[in-house]
Design a binder for these strands. Structure first.
Lengths: 221, 221
DNA sequence: CGAGTATGTGAGGGATCGTTCAGTTTCTGA
DNA sequence: TCAGAAACTGAACGATCCCTCACATACTCG
């Protein structure tokens, strides 16, 4: 185990039932404190207090504060990556518009399962341990989407990896801005439809015109 | 002046020449410490030390640490908002593919002027004062892009505000992931072309089919 | 039952951080 | 020239914060 990983990896795993309860309480407490107080005020004291346990219990399972926060972030990102990988396997060989609709639906379902959690974890993803973890998770999802795109029945992509990265980024950006905005259940359906339209239109551009577009526009007029 | 704004607004403005030098040094020092140490280790002591000044000078111009960081973020976001507003004025009445190419070009030029700065400031934008500032700046840019889209000569949008928000988010997401990746000068031109393709394809979907797409695909096939 | 293990507790050490303020230096304008 | 204003300095204070450790409690299994 490398030095940096050792500092961010859980110390030991719970074997009895009550210890599993403790780590679960620490996870939810960390998220709650993160939402209410912000990352800079998300301290070990406050987390343990809200979890109803003691500081010592926290340090039995995590070597430091960042390890706990990274563990919470990892659970969040793993849920999204797994959902994307699953939908990408299911949609192999389909048409790209079907792929786009299924991908957006599953991505949003996983991301918006707990909007407060998703919103608060953006701050953790900006810290040193968070960016590395997010990079690993993004590699997984990009690979899955790229494999799906390569099997499309009605389009050819010269660089599936690039297109997958762009598509995931195009889904991530609007989702992030929407999470900062109003209640997510307000215009959720409208947002999903628009996101499907965005990804579909992007991928359909590769059906007819695999070359670049826009630098010397001579198109429809 | 409201209470929250008073805590994040600069204390006084420099009148002599050397004081302007001091605040400039504080700005660049804050960015450098932010890049090298991260937000949690970006302390007033380190900023003043790197700027070659003293702690006291910092507190003559900013009431607290966050005010300095927010000021740095504001300068960054204002540059981008101004660039977007300018290009949106210039492109009024044009075709949507011309609009997309110009918008992407100017946006990336402003955002990638100093990639290290842009990368580091994502963390500041996640703090309490940063999200408010980013929200205000996003309002400005969304309004500008929406006005431009409403004047397009070859497309009609039912909700220009929604489309502008989605397009800006679709530009922001991939840009953020690219900044975390390899050197920005590596495949910068390729990235810009792909981003133009993405936005162009999205807006062109409104030329022919202003309705939603993807929920019950009955399209090209 | 009882020895050994797993788990829980929280006061306190050591370090760092944000901020103040009394005193010094530099500049400006009459 | 010189008095007042502007700018600079950095030691020190109070407030946290992260984390350790000696000890108490709960559980397991022969």
């Amino acid at each position: 185990m490398s030095t940096v990983a050792a500092l961010l990896t859980p110390r030991k795993s719970p074997v009895q039932a009550r210890s599993a309860v403790t780590v679960g309480a620490l996870h939810t407490a960390a998220i709650q404190v993160l939402v209410r107080e912000g990352l800079s005020r998300c301290t070990t004291t406050r987390i343990a207090e809200r979890a109803g346990t003691s500081i010592g219990s926290l340090y039995q399972y995590y070597p430091n504060r960042d390890a706990l926060l990274v563990a919470v972030l990892e659970r969040h990102l793993t849920g999204i990556s797994t959902a994307v990988e699953q939908v990408c396997r299911e949609q192999r060989g389909r048409r790209i518009d079907v792929m786009a609709a299924a991908l957006v639906r599953r991505f949003l379902a996983a991301k918006l399962r707990d909007p407060e959690e998703a919103k608060a974890l953006y701050a953790v993803a900006e810290e040193r341990g968070g960016v590395l973890l997010a990079a690993r998770m993004r590699e997984r999802t990009v690979a899955a989407v790229a494999a799906m795109l390569g099997s499309a029945s009605d389009a050819r992509f010269d660089d599936v990896c690039l297109v997958a990265t762009m598509a995931l980024g195009a889904m991530f950006g609007p989702t992030q801005t929407m999470l900062r905005g109003a209640a997510p259940s307000e215009s959720g359906a409208c947002f999903e439809r628009e996101l499907v339209l965005l990804v579909t239109a992007y991928w359909r551009a590769y059906q007819s015109a695999p070359d670049r577009v826009g630098d010397t526009p001579t198109g429809t007029a």
